[in-house]
Design a protein around this nucleic acid. Sequence first.
RNA 1: CGGAGAGUAGCGCAGUCUGGUUAGCGCGCAGCGUUCGGGACGCUGAGGCCGCCGGUUCGAAUCCGGCCUCUCCGACCA
Length: 490
Amino acid sequence: MGKGRDSMATQGVTPRSEDYSRWYTDVVQQADLADYAPVRGCMIIKPYGYELWEGIKSALDRRFKATGHRNAYFPLFIPMSFIEKEAEHVEGFKPELAIVTHGGGSELEEPLVVRPTSETLFGEAYARWIQSYRDLPMLINQWANVVRWEMRPRLFLRTTEFLWQEGHTAHATREEAVEETLKILDIYAEVSEQICAVPVIKGRKSPQEKFAGADDTYTIESMMGNAWALQGATSHFLGQNFARAFNIQFLDEKNELQLVWTTSWGMTTRTVGAVVMAHGDDKGLRLPPAIAPIQVVIVPIFKTDDEKTAVFAFAGEVKAQLEAADIRVHFDQREGLSPGFRFNDWEMRGVPVRLEIGPRDVAGKSVMACRRDVPGKEAKKSLAFDGLTPAIQTLLADVQKSMLETARTFRDEHLHEAATYDDLKRIVEDGWALIYHCGTRECEDKIKEETKASSRCYPLDLNPEWQPKGKVCAVCGKPAFGRAYFARAY
RNA sequence: CGGAGAGUAGCGCAGUCUGGUUAGCGCGCAGCGUUCGGGACGCUGAGGCCGCCGGUUCGAAUCCGGCCUCUCCGACCA
């Protein structure tokens, strides 16, 4: 079909192997996840993309609530003076602030910052709300949009405005706050791996990479299809920095005044981009069933009107049976499209399982099931109508599991230990390099400049002892702070 | 902000160098007919402030000046 090739040029996405960035923007737009907005750096999240976010959101929200957190909503505007209260915080965020100077037709007395994050607003409120140890811990989360002015935006991965949740907690002791920070990190890792099928490495950020105003920042780092790293979510131990800046004090059991210990943590719409990049292939999106807005799509095949009637009736029964089991099913009833077109269309949109139903299937009371995560003929197998629901449930579970395994295998194949700087240089061309590192800014900057790779994290698993005795930085020879991954990153 | 590209129909582009009736092509879209188990085809049709502002000219998508926007690559970041 010679002419078909031509139309493929306009309908297909740029092959992933050819140009990874182009492939990514193509997929996001053609799969109807998002579109550009009139203002640079801003994006319109379309229903299909928003549904992915809703999947991530509900998985997180359920877990936050199960661990005692409650949702609230804090304002969009922050007085400029609030941001300036914590020295390191303002230093870090100043370059990316959007500031409102006018309101109601006249210049404001004090400029208002459009929130880039809400530590300061929570700090001010917590100072008023917390009086006694009986008020602790304070465990609040909010779902909100934030604005950080971006030089170089990228759909989902880096937009000037993005959606996220930000948790802000206050505790009586340091230990409790650290425990909270790590508990949330575990939730992020679980949602990323179990729901998004994106394996992560849990670690601690270097002093340079940590959040502005935090004592420690913990992260989950995941690997994209081109072996670059993506920071999936962060959880910060803020020590008493914000408690001091906002005077958040409480009376303990001994009637002594103490500063609280706070944490903050966030996961963003960037995660949608991570799902695209970690799983997508040349044909487009591949979605893990747990968050796929459509888990099963039914594609009808027929020639005559009689066949159509029979196929539609049977497909309707199949749909009803699956829906009764809470499987998200879509029956493609669009007119005038060939089966082949539909196959490609739904594959591009990443639907995990496709059911082909034609006259042969109607006659045999069966459906042809095809899984998106497996290439070629092995992807297809015929399933009987009787017992279809459990068979599909098993299939979806298997797809979910094997997508995580595939991603993990790919990730592990691109993790390498580096004994020397030369090793690192070679490895970061196509992977992550694990080295003993000093953790200093100068050394990180040098590596960044010479290799474009940045310090991703000091994996928690691999650093039972910090500042390991006798070990030195593989790059500069200074005493090692710990073992860190370096990689190209988004 | 630095470097590189690009703005002409919903999308992708040609036309611009060398100014000249009615601005084309492919895809998509609408109607009709034939198709239909891996991106179908025919016929008919709708759809345009040629990014914006100004200038040159009898005449500008095309030449000149200014501005705006987007994409990609770098410095910053979730």
